[in-house]
């Protein structure tokens, strides 16, 4: 039996990909678990309290307890929901971030799938999330969920445009849609210094895509109970919960890749730099959540269309102009 031939064969390649994919999935789940804990600790410290402290030393195992609780809950499917849509929505919302993470360059040679249209794929996958939220809102057959789903659809659509405009800046500077190429083009200077406006726009639009305060109208607790995930409980709710944190991780990865130089950095290995940058962005996103009150729907839409989109266009114009001249 020729070992080399076996290893080079297609089956081996497929098996390798499967193992790598499995590892990535588990790493993602682990990161999501850690992010839940981080959110609770960070929010606690900002609110002059300690956060969870009981479970595990310094409360480390709290997400494990959360996960066990959610998994052992009764699976309630209310009687009058649209069954297919109701069940599909949580699955559909959890998948895109897990898939998109495979396109992100974690290190110089540490990328799962290096395609030349990576950025386009990532942005397309994040749009799937808004569709899933609309499905959840509609499928629940509930006034509050419908309100939440519809609001979310409107919001995600508006901020998607701003997001893409902001993302075009680094694409123009690097000359490619591939995320690995964009990171390699930041060897000299990180794009955040060349594209300060773009960075801020992308960060704001990213937070809006995540449906987090100050843009968390779809799940505005004090107004409409819990918005689009009112009717979900147990593991289905856990999927929504997980999806939010996975999305947050994804958006931070993209911010770090497009603007903060990805894995570029002196001395330390690339992966470590990447992790530091991503968690810095995540910290900023959490910080923003606990500082600001939320926007009203029409103010949110005004802000998206009348402020962010024109600024995004301005950013593209400026970038193109400077590139022509320099």
């Amino acid at each position: 039996m020729d070992i080399a031939a076996l290893l080079a064969s297609e089956w081996a390649q497929l098996a390798l990909y499967a193992v790598a994919g499995f590892v990535l999935l588990n790493v993602m789940l682990g990161i999501v678990t850690f992010l839940v804990l981080m959110e609770r600790k960070v929010s606690g410290w900002m609110q002059v309290r300690l956060g969870p402290m009981e479970i595990g030393p310094w409360g480390i195992l709290v997400t494990v307890a959360d996960a066990i609780k959610l998994m052992t809950k009764q699976d309630v499917v209310p009687r009058h929901v649209d069954r297919f849509v109701f069940r599909l929505a949580p699955a559909l919302i959890a998948l895109p971030p897990l898939i998109a993470v495979s396109l992100v360059p974690f290190g110089k040679n540490l990328i799962f799938a290096d395609t030349s249209v990576a950025l386009l794929l990532v942005l397309a996958l994040t749009s799937l999330t808004s569709m899933a939220i609309l499905m959840a809102g509609w499928g629940s057959n509930n006034k509050y969920s419908l309100l939440g789903g519809v609001r979310s659809a409107a919001q995600d659509l508006s901020y998607e445009v701003a997001l893409i405009f902001a993302a075009l800046g680094p694409v123009m500077l690097a000359g490619s849609l591939s995320l690995q190429d964009i990171v390699k083009a930041q060897g000299g200077v990180w794009f955040v210094f060349l594209q300060p406006l773009g960075f801020i726009l992308f960060l704001i639009a990213g937070i809006a895509e995540l449906n987090r305060t100050p843009f968390d109208i779809p799940e505005a607790e004090s107004e409409i109970v819990a918005g689009y995930h009112t009717e979900y409980s147990g593991m289905r709710f856990a999927l929504f919960f997980m999806a939010e944190y996975a999305n947050m991780f994804l958006v931070s990865c993209i911010v770090a890749t497009l603007f903060l130089g990805g894995w570029q950095g002196p001395v330390l290995p690339g992966v470590l730099w990447f992790v530091l940058k991503v968690f810095a962005v995540i910290f900023v996103i959490m910080w923003v959540r606990w500082t600001f009150p939320r926007f009203r729907v029409d103010q949110l839409m005004t802000f998206g269309w009348k402020v962010l989109v024109p600024l995004g266009l301005l950013n593209i114009l400026l970038t193109g102009g400077v590139m022509l001249l320099v």
Binding site: S43, M46, Q47, V48, R49, T213, P214, D216, A220, E221, S222, R289, W290, T291, F292, P293, R294
Partner: peptide, 15 residues
């Protein structure tokens, strides 16, 4: 603050 969506002033006020 909570009504408007700001979670943090509540804790400062209670301190």
């Amino acid at each position: 603050g909570l009504n408007l969506g700001a979670g943090t002033p509540f804790f400062y006020a209670f301190r």
